[in-house]
Nucleic acid binder design. Sequence first.
DNA 1: ATATCTGCAAAGACTTTGCATGAGA
DNA 2: TCTCATGCAAAGTCTTTGCAGATAT
Lengths: 156, 156
Amino acid sequence: MYGRGKIGHNWWYRRFRGCGYRITIPRESILDVLSRTDEHLSAEDIYLAVHKVHPTIGLTTIYRTLEILVQMGLVFKFDFGDGRARFELAEGPKGKRHHHHLVCSKCGRVIDYTDFIDDEMEFLSRAEQGLAKKFHFDITHHVIQFYGVCDTCQGR
Amino acid sequence: MYGRGKIGHNWWYRRFRGCGYRITIPRESILDVLSRTDEHLSAEDIYLAVHKVHPTIGLTTIYRTLEILVQMGLVFKFDFGDGRARFELAEGPKGKRHHHHLVCSKCGRVIDYTDFIDDEMEFLSRAEQGLAKKFHFDITHHVIQFYGVCDTCQGR
DNA sequence: ATATCTGCAAAGACTTTGCATGAGA
DNA sequence: TCTCATGCAAAGTCTTTGCAGATAT
């Protein structure tokens, strides 16, 4: 994680300030952790990662920051059925790859996949438009998850 | 809810016994509640509904039974982001209509929709087959949810 | 200067577990 | 009869809240 001096030059700076939120070390650190991983981190995972660099930052701040980030649309919150929420950056400096999840019901393993996105896009754009019109919803995002048993758990 | 005498003649009887589970009044009652509603009931909702007919049945039994039902694939468990799980019968006597959910991020309202199922089927069957092959997953089901702001919450 | 933000401790909400009793097959 | 299921109470997890001190702008 880079030092405090860079504050104000991050990709999310404008967006953050635009919402009236202040740029703080905890927030910077949390976004930094999220932007450096491909995993599906829980609040505690993030806390532990942040803690290594800034041991004074508490779990409460993690939760409060994540709430803001989710509400701003900067971060997606997922539930894979294991009782804790998981978080992922929605976009990034370079823009994260659009993907969905494949979850093993036995061991909880989560695989990201980016296949079939073209087919999906076609289906989704039609569905989103139709649903928005029919139910007068302002649709912001969608979640697609496949559940099943992974190869490891099958040989059990 | 019909009386005890009918035990053994319900549509889920064979399936239940086949897994080595006993037919009991609580289980019968929970399935009865689930089969009579179109809503997305939480464990407590189910408890309250069951409680009206059988006041002695406890919340613990609701949770334990739901766990079995989900694991058997008779019931689907959803998370709409409000901190409590929601349950829905996967199939029924007449077979429930395949549908997905449209969730309002503001008020939590959930709308079931059955539109675009044809498009979806086409996309999903291709995706499922491809994913199953590529990741060696035995896919059991999928979840598709659209999130957004409902008409009521937009005029706020 | 002052409205926000943070950390700690405590509370809250949902869900799970232990154990003795009760019930299905 | 004998295993499985239930209810109660207690415990467990994850998450949220209250408040005084610290911080960004």
